[in-house]
Design a protein around this nucleic acid. Sequence first.
DNA 1: TCTCGTATAGAAAGCGCTTGCTACGGCCGT
DNA 2: ACGGCCGTAGCAAGCGCTTTCTATACGAGA
Lengths: 354, 354
Amino acid sequence: MTVTLADVAARARVSPATVSRVLNGNYPVAASTRERVLRAVDDLDYVLNGQASALAAATSDLVGILVNDIADPFFGIMAGAAQTEIGGPGDGSGRAGGEKLAVVCNTGGSPDRELTYLTLLQRQRAAAVVLTGGAVEDPEHQTAMAAKLAKLAEAGTRVVLCGRPPLPDGAAVVAALAFDNQGGAQRLTKHLLSLGHRRIGYVAGPLERTTTRHRLAGHREAMRGAGAAGDEDRLTVHGSYDRGSGYDATVELLRREPAITAVVAANDTVALGAAAAIRDRGLRIPEDISVAGFDDLPFSVDVVPALTTVRLPLVEAGARAGRLAMGKEDPPPGGIALIPAELMVRGSTAPPRG
Amino acid sequence: MTVTLADVAARARVSPATVSRVLNGNYPVAASTRERVLRAVDDLDYVLNGQASALAAATSDLVGILVNDIADPFFGIMAGAAQTEIGGPGDGSGRAGGEKLAVVCNTGGSPDRELTYLTLLQRQRAAAVVLTGGAVEDPEHQTAMAAKLAKLAEAGTRVVLCGRPPLPDGAAVVAALAFDNQGGAQRLTKHLLSLGHRRIGYVAGPLERTTTRHRLAGHREAMRGAGAAGDEDRLTVHGSYDRGSGYDATVELLRREPAITAVVAANDTVALGAAAAIRDRGLRIPEDISVAGFDDLPFSVDVVPALTTVRLPLVEAGARAGRLAMGKEDPPPGGIALIPAELMVRGSTAPPRG
DNA sequence: TCTCGTATAGAAAGCGCTTGCTACGGCCGT
DNA sequence: ACGGCCGTAGCAAGCGCTTTCTATACGAGA
């Protein structure tokens, strides 16, 4: 049926061992022999059996990248950057040695699927795993995750967190790159406050997500700092990280408090929905209501008016995570790095009327 | 080191064969024995070695999804939908049998990486492969791809094309789901023509991509049909499928022909860049210049003015591709299906001035 | 000329799992 | 009461590769 090493060996009139060595290039083989083998490989269209190879060598060329929502560019950008660093040859030695299969797995934000994918990757004895995006804060799930990651690490899988805070109970991971969500959110709200806003609605992400909590915390911290707190719960609506959710939440916000002068959204996509809701209500942005997002996704600069937001260096972070996963870069001190978030002031925010 | 089947067997005081059968549930095992085995599995935290299992059983639970650009929601949406259909349990039998590892691979639109990933998947003896998005039309690459896909199919891998035209030389694939790019583009341009536009700039995608060619063909067909052709080459600028490219191309278009009254972009993302360029030039949309996109990505309805575009049923197509890859759905007659594209007229297009 | 180090190739033992076949009771049919 | 069958469990042969150890052939040093 399929061509095996033995077939190649037979055709090249050498032993399977020699073929293996030629293919792996980790053992001296006479040039003439090598050539004969390579020709046979070519003639037969031989393709290595990855599973057999991995089994025998106890290694794997699989690297998993877990994302919450693959349709969201936030994750796509990070995953793409990570994959670029991981995949393909060219890492160090001239030889095409480190050819890894970087694969991204879409958890859909579901804790169960997250665990399932980790198990699947564990089955495959993945060389590394990169977890991106916020974590679910359910204690039970956190315990399960910690245990799973510990198992993975124990089995030699390099675990890297990207855009996710370190595990609560001492990380069994290579490194954790956490975004400064709280600081960024705080600066964003401060910007709004400095413009004169006081009644600021907040469209938060799903409950029990670290990202949601940290951004909201930053926002409230800023509000409190300005003595503008008090109405927090009433002016906060939770939803998922998508456009429709932003729309609905904003409608609700305007119902609860028609006098708000600004809406801060959990991320840019949500901000888009929020902006749509505001316009559908006949209000202008930013004259009547200011809108701000988070992440600075590529489209944010192009919408009208351009979205004030907080820029997260997704490409850089993803690439770094990829390098860390491959062991091409040393982990930050303590295994933890806080990735700074930069406030991007654009046209969607302005002083409130009057 | 790691726990093996044999360890579990020893602890449960049965043979490895029995453990295997309990785990796979494909052979009668006495209830008491099964329970003993399961307890041992639990006690030992045993995790199946996927490679060994795959090797022995000559099967694989890997399914590859190739995308051109994972940061582009166009692909993210399709891949996500496909992955949902493929991954996890719940497909048919009550048992958690069909647990596949659906992984998405980012080719970055590079033919080489595309081939590399296919080889990697071939190495892993992938159960199925889904290729999404337009193909590169370089003859050499096409030949290589055809050969590769034939090999994969021969080895039992189910190959599905999603949003990609069938291979030129008779498909060695399970199914090809092709978008009606040409028809959609034609309808879009006809819409513009019917509004009265005649000088229409076209921001095309990269050369040698089927998607680019088909959309452009539809556009030109419409132009010719209206007797508005002639200036085609001068009013067409090629670029990549991203925002910056749309911006630059539009600047160039306006330089070449300041009198254009509409710009059609290769896709929505490019349209966003085009719109930005137009606005930066001090022109209004759609009063001065109409803008149209393609794909109807989620943000398109939210930008201002809302983007006239052509809707592609990405979720449905991706899901269907996933089902086809899993053999959960019968392929369309002839293995080829043309996915319709629907014109979405919104605020970014209007009759030209005067 | 003989021995020994060096370079190269092969033999063979697994890696951890699956599965066809065999073995062994106990139950049924006659 | 005996042969045969059914329901279970084990044996053992691989799956296709890697790698250690061993064997061979050479040229070099003595």
